[in-house]
Design a protein around this nucleic acid. Sequence first.
RNA 1: GCCAAUGUAGCUCAGCUGGCAGAGCAGCGGUUUCGUAAACCGCAGGUCAAGGGUUCGAGUCCCUUCAUUGGCUCCA
Length: 634
Amino acid sequence: MLISYNGNSIDRKDGENALDIVRDLDPELAKKALAARLDGELVQSLADPIHGDRTLEILTFDDDAGKKTLRHTASHVLAQAVLRLVPNAKLAIGPAIDNGFYYDFDVEEPFTPDFLQKVEKEMQKIIKKNDRLERFELPRGEAIEFCKQANQPYKVELIEDLPEGEVISFYKQGDFTDLCAGPHLPSTGKVKAFKLQSIAGAYWRGSEKNKMLQRIYGTAFFDKDELAAYLEKLEEAKKRDHRKLGRELDLFALMDEGPGFPFFFPKGMVLRNELEGYWRALHRQSGYLETRTPIMLNQHLWEESGHWDHYKENIYSTKIDDQIYCLKPMNCPGGILVYKRKAWSYRELPLRMGELGIVHRHELSGAMHGLMRVRCFTQDDAHLFITPEMIKDEVIGIHRMEDHMYNMFGFKYHVELSTRPENSMGTDEMWASATLGLKGALDELGVPYVVNEGDGAFYGPKIDYHLEDSIGRTWQCGTIQLDMNMPERFDLSYIGPDGEKHRPVMLHRTIYGSIERFIGILTEHFAGAFPLWLSPVQAKVMTITDRADQAATKLVSALEAAGIRVEADLRNEKIGFKIREAQMEKVPYMFILGDKEAESGEASVRSRKEGDLGTMGVDAIVQKLVDEILTKSI
RNA sequence: GCCAAUGUAGCUCAGCUGGCAGAGCAGCGGUUUCGUAAACCGCAGGUCAAGGGUUCGAGUCCCUUCAUUGGCUCCA
């Protein structure tokens, strides 16, 4: 038997007590583990015998692995409780996930919110009873028989799909036994603080071809305060929801009349225009040219590109003069036509063409989410036409732009590499070399990434950049897609130094991804308090009495002359009221003028973040704001 | 598209087992000229998402559709 401990393999006798093994390996750790266990803090049951090639892990209550174990045990308690209330429920799977756990059930009657409360009560009883979780293993045949006896067809299916030779283990707690690899807490009583959060439908094994099961989501922590703090944090995060802030700050909204087609109001347009303006500046510096292609093109083009075959369900189309026209779901065919308009020399490559292209995609109604997933959005697209030798350098160049853009807003991001999907076109060799090209660039940059098998575009593999929203959901924004198929399909070429035609490689890429989604993420990230350069209203000048109106108007003119977006608040209201309104509108700077300031020609400066900053002269104020706008500080 | 929940004034919400549609904020009118997050008084504002049904009577019960929310699937 092999046990891995701190990465070393050590021979041990089968069935040996885990604690003894630890004691031999590391007496100090064993002492700590034992003490922790006496305090009820040790997560994994050290009394469990170690069988087979399992890794021995010592888990304490304060690490992520410990929480994961706790939540996994909580999901077993959940399943036990549901089975008590609905004895003929069929169990599917119940894993721990980030921040919680879930369990899927096949039941005749869908769960209701009331039912959740009953389940919670039942779970309390199980926890109070503090049954030990005991592990046992069965040979494949017996394990299948066991689950058949228990009338658990999904478990039977799971076992049948386990590879030969895999250890098949179960965990038993009181009257409940579940197929499970573990590990688990020693007993149900260790689940001290939990909460069931929501009910959802979920397809068995994640495929819409399968039956929809009922899923219960919950979370669990080792102590009640931690749970309360987490739930509080979720509540706080809801206040940052871009859909709420978009309405409150009068930026954008979705209306019933246009599901998935967002409206941008004047203040939201300021945000968009600033983002697009910066995008243009960055691309000019980086050697990109800008194009614009039509949002509607005939069906023939989409057949030629393969979109009609691979993406038909999502394409809006209309018939005019006996021809079908499609609202473009992607910009690439337009970009290709721009390329094809003339002959290119190798000397002109790499050719980098950007386009802020409006695309329409008929997303499933249930998939829409504020600005994050819509049916009409603007991609900050670009198409690069390059030679195969340029792949690595160009991908590295794009990555640097992505990294720069996210860093300037203080975003955390993670990178995924998505490989060939089932419904794809092109040869194996094309896919292999394209995937290798992207991988090579990431590896050279030393960028960590996860591989997302089968999630690429139908024409090529891709690198995706994912950003987090306020409650930790991640959304794909930037993408780099390597495409050797479209150039083939459209017979693209450039003339090489040898005077012969050669096939270029195409890179499709975005940085914001979609301006709409990016604005959603930005709004949540800053909780609506955008950096000065992006703020729809950058400053408000407000008076204490109408005796300061003239001085205020002068300051407003000076700020306007410097290109600053400023509003005057000369209303007959108390200054506290005006400040309150400006704070709620998240205006970065407030300039307050009363009799003193009207006299001295200065203004009292208040920052949204730091409050009262004292008095400054008009020139100093203008300079301060202009500097902050130019540096785009966050 | 699928599972579940929700839809009442511009916004946030109340409206019990069916019996005259309400509040706060915002808006409008007036009073108040005030020093760093809410002055006071008044007025107006609704086909209760849409359509159908049950009933003497429907915001409330039933059905259909639309939209939204949380998930699943899909994806920028």
